[in-house]
């Protein structure tokens, strides 16, 4: 598990040294390093997980134009964005980022955030996207994807392991890395039956 965290930090260019990780849990850091190559091999060196944070920001900018937002609505969109960010944090603990493109993940997060804050008419925004983009896909296909993403969050959230819960208390940013780690753990399990 620690090797996965170490590798995730390294891959995401937020490096934490093995020594520091080792100190944190009174473990020999060499054990972390010895398993590093095994982690990469297990993943077949597919190392990038695309997080939807940037997509959320992109959609917020797009909404500002779409709704021709005034000052008051800009404030509400900022609130929408902040809540969506927490939704994304939850998603990163699931397999959803490995199954859906970032844009759909971002829309699912924004949809949930909007359900809470009621900032915009979300459905009319989605229809607006389709009418603007001459999409090959349909509204119902997108709705199915968004519902599937929500299902992943609901199911996985109840299975958060104790170690993850503890680490969540340290800093919010580590959720970003744990999303990647979640994938490693999953693969790790399948590698060692």
């Amino acid at each position: 598990m620690l090797t996965c965290i170490y590798a995730a930090c390294k891959i995401e260019e937020n490096h934490v040294s093995a020594e520091e990780l080792g100190k944190g849990i009174s473990q020999d850091h060499q054990m972390i390093l010895n398993n590093e190559m095994i982690v990469y091999q297990s993943l077949e060196f597919d190392l990038i997980v695309y997080a939807p944070y940037r997509s959320v920001e992109g959609f917020i900018n797009d909404m500002e134009e779409f709704f021709n937002a005034g000052d008051n609505q800009l404030e509400m969109l900022k609130t929408l964005q902040e809540t969506a960010r927490f939704e994304v944090d939850k998603m990163m603990l699931t397999d959803a980022p490995l199954l859906f493109p970032p844009g759909q993940l971002a829309l699912a997060a924004l949809g949930n955030s909007n359900a809470l804050h009621r900032v915009i008419d979300f459905d009319s925004y989605l229809r607006g996207i389709f009418s603007r983009e001459n999409s090959m896909h349909t509204m119902s296909e997108l709705s199915e994807s968004l519902d599937a993403i929500d299902s992943w969050v609901i199911v996985s959230h109840s299975n958060v392991c104790p170690l993850t819960e503890q680490m969540c208390k340290f800093q919010i940013n580590i959720l970003y890395w744990l999303g990647t780690v979640g994938y490693f753990c999953f693969t790790w399990t399948t590698v060692r039956p």
């Binding site: 170490y6 390294k10 891959i11 490096h15 040294s17 093995a18 972390i32 390093l33 590093e36 190559m37 990469y40 091999q41 060196f45 597919d46 190392l47 990038i48």
Partner: peptide
């Protein structure tokens, strides 16, 4: 600090970049 940082970066990015004008990473293994 374990596996070489630049090698990891090269693997990570070249796995995503497939283009006639970008060198192809065919395989990687220890």
């Amino acid at each position: 600090e374990g596996v070489n940082f630049t090698a990891l970066r090269e693997i990570k990015l070249l796995k995503e970049l497939k283009d006639p004008n970008i060198v192809e990473l065919i395989d990687a293994f220890p």
